[in-house]
Design a protein around this nucleic acid. Structure first.
Lengths: 161, 161
DNA sequence: GAAGATTGAGTACTCAATCTTA
DNA sequence: TAAGATTGAGTACTCAATCTTC
């Protein structure tokens, strides 16, 4: 969402891509993820992720560790500072999503939207030739941060809509 | 749409932002638009548009002309070469959209999606404080290129879905 | 002073090439 | 040879500063 990205950039002073990576790490067990898995979750290329992690590392929000089981591998770990940064950004993120969705869709429309998005998502996956899941057990539920559109919509709908 | 952008970049060798500008110009009367209006139509900042037009001009796809009524103004004009480039890109664009939408949504879902998108659009405009229309008479109908999602959806739905 | 538009600096994204380990 | 990850070059995007004209 263009509008959400802009508000994140201006008010929370964080890029959408950076935010996405922090969210994925915060939801991962142990706040850590292999670079390859993180790239898949965040829908980025390996090189793109590498540059982003460089930047996040320079902020002290993420650190790299060697992978214990595969000496080629690197693990990105969310630091306490990174968690703080994410916590500071989330109010803006939530508010931006809330302003778009809150009170604008009926419960029926929300169900319709979900079905439509799933259908279109299948269309994109089929067109792209994707089949594999990015990683195990990350998407089913948001343990800490309600950052997905569906979660935020559900949350705001019960309050405001 | 991420997927559409990627296919445009790889197969049609054109950036999404460039494509958008070409489409807006092709739909404008006389294939020409003031920089400010073009920026509004294409949802870009003035400086961003200026850089994009620089690039398009270097390709010979767009040229700048002085504005007759306002000596501060510049007018971006789509060249024949630019129209050709757009014509070459459109098949990829249409196909990408078609693959996502084609046969995936029922007629009822398409109507629902339209209503939902309009509601969410109102949400974004309200949140952003937008009220004004970008320009007069550009959006009502696509004279040449069916590049909007709704037009492409309607076109493919009648054929494939 | 405000509006239309451009410029330059800083940062980010994409691709191809590269390096190390499996 | 393939997989995991990084690097560097080229290009694009964003912001603040600037210039001209209203």
């Amino acid at each position: 969402m263009e509008y959400v990205d802009r508000r994140l950039r201006h008010e929370a002073r964080i890029r959408s891509a950076h935010h996405t990576v922090l969210v994925e790490l915060s939801e991962a067990p142990g706040r850590r993820l292999r670079m390859t898995e993180l790239a898949a979750c965040a829908q980025m290329s390996p090189s793109g992720l590498s540059h982003v992690v460089d930047r996040l590392q320079s902020f002290g929000w993420v650190r790299r560790e060697a992978c214990a089981t595969d000496r080629r591998g690197q693990v990105a770990v969310l630091t306490d500072g990174g968690l703080d940064a994410l916590a500071r950004a989330e109010p803006v993120h939530i508010d931006a999503i809330r302003r778009v969705f809150c009170g604008r869709l009926t419960a029926e429309q929300q169900r319709e939207l979900r079905a439509i998005m799933e259908a279109l998502g299948r269309g994109v996956r089929r067109a792209s030739g994707w089949t594999a899941e990015p990683a195990q057990g990350l998407r089913p539920g948001p343990p800490a941060e309600p950052s997905s559109v569906t979660a935020a919509t559900a949350a705001t709908a019960t309050e405001g809509g």
